[in-house]
């Protein structure tokens, strides 16, 4: 790097142009994951799993071996890979429709087995790729294309809190919820991602980082309004913080 260069594209990402809408925070999260893999010197050993949703084409973006999984099945695919290559770094990148709805079974059991994998769970409270339908994570009152009058608790129940649920599973090693709505939280998010991958490297078991993210197009807002909406509406229902850190609780050995 020349002395004058203070910021450049991470080599953890390919040169492919992102397919995300302008204003979407997926790009930030991609970059954080890629930077962490490079900083931990894990990129060359990493195998990522792209799921179904907006991030389906993540296999074109991460500069490491990638496999594309069926809707919700990424933790099972990751299990298959990791059990064959226990010394490689295996991660999934999943949205909330993928993980919290159709893939709820797979993630629960991967955590239960304490598969030594890392799950990057991007929660934007909506199905983005398919055009803004209601997700299990959609907030009460939130209007989507399939809850046009606002989500009603009586009909759909309350939004599912994945981190809280997975933290109750004995096999879960590290569960943290973070957000990328401002630079300070972007930095915290990177720390959480780094810790998850470090734990995987140390063979500590199942790690998941839930990242609150915006979908300005699906939410029908400007990118800046979407960041505010996340802070004002999502964080109160989805409190940030470490829900489980077995390594810390048990004392690092």
């Amino acid at each position: 790097m020349p002395d004058s260069m203070i910021f450049q594209r991470t080599k953890g990402l390919t040169d492919a142009e992102f397919t995300y809408c302008p204003g979407c925070t997926h790009g930030i999260i991609h970059r954080l994951v890629a930077e962490v893999l490079v900083e931990l010197n894990q990129l060359e050993d990493a195998i990522g799993i792209a799921s179904v949703g907006c991030s389906v084409m993540a296999y074109d973006f991460f500069n490491c071996d990638m496999q594309q999984a069926a809707h919700g099945r990424a933790p099972a695919v990751a299990t298959g890979i990791k059990r064959c290559l226990p010394n490689n770094i295996v991660f999934t990148y999943q949205g909330d429709g993928d993980l919290a709805s159709i893939g709820a079974g797979e993630v629960v059991h991967a955590a239960h087995r304490s598969e030594n994998i890392t799950i990057i769970f991007v929660n934007n409270a909506i199905y983005g790729m398919t055009g803004g339908q209601m997700a299990p994570t959609t907030l009460i009152g939130q209007k989507t294309t399939t809850s046009p009058y606002g989500r009603k608790k009586e009909e759909t129940g309350d939004p599912i809190r994945v981190s809280e649920m997975l933290a109750t599973i004995p096999g879960a090693t590290y569960i943290e919820r973070v957000s990328v709505h401002n630079p300070a939280h972007v930095r915290k998010t990177k720390k959480a991602i780094k810790k998850a991958f470090q734990y995987q490297q140390e063979k500590r078991g199942f790690t998941m980082v839930e990242i609150l993210s915006t979908c300005n197009v699906g939410w029908g807002m400007s990118p800046l309004d979407a960041l505010d909406w996340l802070e004002e509406n999502m964080i109160p229902y989805y409190p940030l913080g470490v829900y489980k850190d077995k390594v810390k609780e048990e004392g690092r050995q």
């Binding site: 298959g80 890979i81 059990r83 079974g105 797979e106």
Partner: peptide
């Protein structure tokens, strides 16, 4: 070797997909 009892046949076949992807 490795034996994994999956949580369902859906999970089992997707584990197969992942494992097969590694060339195993």
């Amino acid at each position: 070797g490795v034996y994994v009892q999956a949580e369902s046949e859906v999970a089992a076949v997707n584990m197969i997909y992942g494992a097969a992807g590694t060339g195993t």
